[in-house]
Amino acid sequence: MTNPSATDSSADPIVELDARRHRYTITVASQVAGFTQFFDHDRQRVFFHTEIGKEYGGHGLGTRLVAEALDDVRAAGLRVVPICPFVKSYLDRHPEYGDLVDPVTPDLLARVSGA
């Protein structure tokens, strides 16, 4: 069995919120290619981990995943806390999302680390 290619034009990537698992996923040809995990704190969505499968790397799927997740956060009227380095890097390169960003605080970091 072969893995679907992220470059297959018939395999248009789909980003979806998986609220039960507290993550957004990106799917290519019915296969989960990656995800970004979060937890909600008050009116903040705290992103702490993003992962794209090795076989899907280099095709911009992480960028699309984060962009669509942030658009969903905006539509829901929430704020973003970027603990995840990938999400933070994306936000640094896309100032149009700057109005959504709240700072990372020690208590939120402690929650991620389990301290």
Results as ranks from 00 to 15, higher is better:
residue 1 M to E: 02
residue 3 N to P: 00
residue 6 A to Q: 04
residue 6 A to K: 06
residue 8 D to I: 13
residue 8 D to F: 14
residue 9 S to T: 13
residue 11 A to D: 08
residue 12 D to V: 15
residue 14 I to Q: 08
residue 14 I to V: 14
residue 14 I to F: 01
residue 14 I to R: 09
residue 14 I to T: 02
residue 15 V to N: 02
residue 15 V to C: 07
residue 16 E to N: 10
residue 17 L to F: 11
residue 17 L to A: 13
residue 18 D to K: 06
residue 18 D to A: 12
residue 20 R to W: 02
residue 20 R to H: 10
residue 21 R to A: 15
residue 22 H to N: 15
residue 22 H to L: 11
residue 23 R to E: 12
residue 24 Y to R: 01
residue 25 T to M: 11
residue 25 T to Q: 10
residue 25 T to E: 09
residue 25 T to C: 11
residue 25 T to K: 07
residue 26 I to C: 05
residue 27 T to D: 06
residue 27 T to K: 03
residue 29 A to Y: 04
residue 31 Q to W: 07
residue 31 Q to T: 15
residue 33 A to G: 03
residue 34 G to W: 01
residue 37 Q to P: 00
residue 37 Q to H: 07
residue 37 Q to E: 15
residue 37 Q to G: 04
residue 39 F to D: 08
residue 41 H to N: 14
residue 41 H to R: 15
residue 41 H to Q: 15
residue 42 D to P: 00
residue 42 D to W: 07
residue 42 D to H: 10
residue 43 R to G: 03
residue 44 Q to V: 09
residue 45 R to P: 00
residue 46 V to N: 05
residue 46 V to R: 05
residue 47 F to C: 09
residue 49 H to K: 06
residue 50 T to F: 08
residue 50 T to K: 10
residue 53 G to W: 06
residue 54 K to F: 07
residue 55 E to D: 10
residue 56 Y to E: 06
residue 58 G to W: 02
residue 60 G to K: 05
residue 61 L to Q: 00
residue 62 G to D: 00
residue 62 G to K: 03
residue 62 G to N: 04
residue 63 T to M: 08
residue 64 R to F: 10
residue 64 R to A: 13
residue 64 R to V: 14
residue 64 R to T: 13
residue 64 R to N: 03
residue 65 L to W: 02
residue 65 L to F: 04
residue 65 L to Q: 02
residue 66 V to F: 07
residue 66 V to M: 10
residue 66 V to Y: 03
residue 66 V to T: 05
residue 67 A to M: 05
residue 68 E to N: 06
residue 68 E to I: 02
residue 70 L to A: 10
residue 71 D to Q: 09
residue 71 D to S: 11
residue 72 D to E: 12
residue 73 V to D: 07
residue 73 V to P: 00
residue 73 V to Q: 01
residue 74 R to A: 15
residue 74 R to S: 11
residue 74 R to Y: 07
residue 74 R to K: 12
residue 75 A to G: 04
residue 76 A to G: 03
residue 76 A to Q: 09
residue 76 A to E: 08
residue 76 A to W: 00
residue 78 L to C: 04
residue 79 R to C: 07
residue 79 R to L: 14
residue 80 V to F: 06
residue 80 V to D: 03
residue 81 V to C: 04
residue 81 V to E: 08
residue 81 V to K: 03
residue 82 P to S: 12
residue 82 P to E: 07
residue 82 P to L: 14
residue 82 P to K: 08
residue 85 P to M: 15
residue 85 P to E: 09
residue 86 F to P: 00
residue 86 F to I: 10
residue 87 V to A: 12
residue 87 V to G: 04
residue 87 V to E: 02
residue 88 K to E: 13
residue 88 K to A: 15
residue 89 S to I: 04
residue 89 S to Q: 13
residue 90 Y to F: 15
residue 90 Y to H: 11
residue 91 L to T: 03
residue 91 L to N: 01
residue 91 L to S: 01
residue 92 D to E: 13
residue 94 H to K: 14
residue 94 H to F: 06
residue 96 E to Y: 01
residue 97 Y to E: 09
residue 97 Y to A: 14
residue 98 G to V: 12
residue 98 G to T: 10
residue 98 G to F: 07
residue 99 D to V: 05
residue 99 D to S: 14
residue 100 L to V: 07
residue 102 D to K: 10
residue 102 D to W: 08
residue 102 D to V: 08
residue 102 D to E: 15
residue 104 V to Q: 03
residue 105 T to V: 09
residue 106 P to C: 13
residue 107 D to G: 03
residue 111 R to Y: 05
residue 112 V to S: 03
residue 113 S to E: 13
residue 113 S to N: 12
residue 114 G to C: 12
residue 114 G to Q: 04
residue 114 G to D: 08
residue 115 A to Y: 01
